[in-house]
């Protein structure tokens, strides 16, 4: 599989990362090299092999339904860029 410019632009948009037009070709060739390399896995037969999601703990622990967090609005907002306490803000979203 080979990434073209259009795919790079689509992926960059999906990942919300600005990519300069001048960077696209370089990025495409780098990513293509990496993808070509990881595609060596295609030569390995994995038929009937279960995918491995994680290691170790095989069963998620469950937590009691207690309220033991929150009420820390000040700390939660302390690092916010352009806050309007008690709110975070973003540039106006038009619905």
């Amino acid at each position: 599989m080979s990434l073209d410019r259009e795919t790079i632009v689509r992926i960059a948009k999906l990942a919300r990362i600005d990519v300069e037009d001048s960077e696209i070709d370089g990025l495409a060739s780098e990513l293509n090299n990496i993808l070509d390399w990881v595609e060596t896995l295609n030569s390995i037969s994995t038929e009937g092999v279960e995918p491995m999601v994680g290691v170790g703990v095989s069963k998620a622990p469950l937590r009691m339904d207690n309220t033991n967090d929150g009420d820390i609005a000040e700390a939660v907002l302390a690092n916010a860029p352009d806050p309007a306490p008690p709110y975070f803000t973003v540039p106006k979203v038009i619905e």
Partner: peptide
Amino acid sequence: TSEAKLFSGASASFGAKPNSHVSFLDA
């Protein structure tokens, strides 16, 4: 209907002061 959120210990109740029922995970 629960005391706390699905993955954090912050209260799941309705109508609190903005951003008060928020844990660091929720943020």
